[in-house]
Write a protein that binds this DNA or RNA. Structure first.
Lengths: 203, 203
DNA sequence: TGAGGATAATACCGACCGGTATGGATGTGT
DNA sequence: ACACATCCATACCGGTCGGTATTATCCTCA
């Protein structure tokens, strides 16, 4: 049998991500991850000391890169951060499928489940969220200097509300298991974003 | 030993509610519930056929009455539903304590956890949420007839956004384990509500 | 080519879980 | 006071879980 430790580790991470996404961390079954990958406990516990380390590695090596690519890089690189944010949200609204809605946002799921229970998870996930929020704040601030975002909007509070709304949307949609609700809800958020544009004079 | 079946059942429900609130339904331990109450499995499985039935009973007999009293009755009975809604949110913002934020909203927690897994839970909780949403829609519609809510607002979409925002607020606050975040977030929502008042002309 | 570390498979453990079978205690109708 | 249903305690079961100890296999490098 050919060996490939890196790929072994990677496939363990992918399978763990899927299992955690489907059942949450606590209910995620080591046995299921192993049968998904065709591996055994020897492989898993060689690469990870215990289940918690596996979970944290999933956050660092699977969730974080995807999230950064999807939600952070576009805001950071665009000369029009507000428009970029709007585009990200619109694309999420239009492209996400029912299966994703059924399971919900992996980050949100993990935070909801683990934040009250484990400090390690809380710290890792909070770091991600803070990065998100800081990216939004920086983007909004910059948008304000270019006039893309109107004055009178507090970037920090707006960023908080945006984060909260996005999680609210996906939370409600997951709760109701309804893709339509998700889209309607995000549409409302897009409307809110449009009220932040420069040129208008409304609160 | 004196007997009191109703109280036995009630204390089981209360303990189950606490245990589920702390650990979620799947991770809620029957043994812990029993040691909390000082009862044994004989009592529990006399009153409830299995764990799922216990969970559903918690929803019906503990969660629903509290939720109705807190969030539904004020909207339904007030002649100024928008103001009543605002008052409810403000009071939640100001009175909720850190322990509650740490654990999150019991309804939201349960929906997030169980909706994808079990149709019975999903149905029971969806019924609650629909009741909430319909109450809000009815209230907003009525407020529109009295001029409390300005025209041009779609009550259904606004209600959806309000529900989503509230869950977003408590979700973010629980994730960050931060009471301050909760308050800041709900303040943003109150601001949003104030933009819905009649008399103003902004979108 | 052979030694030794890296990698993975197998078998097994104790703990805990939800659930059941049984029997004893308590209340109730007659 | 007796029969009977309600109510609850106790002991136990099969199954699953995360984790460990041991052993086998592969790769690397001297």
């Amino acid at each position: 049998m050919k060996r490939n430790p890196d790929q072994t580790r990677q496939s363990l991470l992918e399978a763990a991500f899927g299992e955690i996404h489907r059942h949450g961390f606590q209910a995620a079954s080591i046995g299921q991850i192993l049968s998904d990958t065709g591996l055994t406990k020897g492989a898993l516990y060689h690469h990870f000391p215990d289940k918690k380390a596996l979970g944290l590695a999933v956050i660092d090596d699977v969730i974080r890169p995807r999230f950064t690519a999807w939600h952070l890089d576009p805001i950071r690189t665009s000369p029009f951060p507000l428009a970029a944010l709007r585009a990200v949200i619109v694309s999420r609204r239009d492209e996400v499928d029912a299966a994703y809605i059924a399971l919900g946002c992996p980050i949100n799921n993990l935070m909801q489940e683990m934040s009250p229970l484990d400090e390690g998870f809380r710290a890792a996930l909070t770091a991600l969220v803070n990065e998100w929020q800081e990216t939004l704040v920086a983007g909004l601030r910059y948008a304000q200097t270019t006039g893309e975002l109107r004055d009178g909007v507090d970037p920090a509070q707006a960023a908080l509300f945006i984060v909260s709304s996005i999680w609210g949307c996906i939370g409600v949609a997951k709760s109701l298991q309804s893709l339509e609700t998700y889209r309607a809800c995000l549409t409302q958020l897009v409307n809110y974003l449009d009220t932040l544009k420069g040129g208008t004079s409304c609160p």
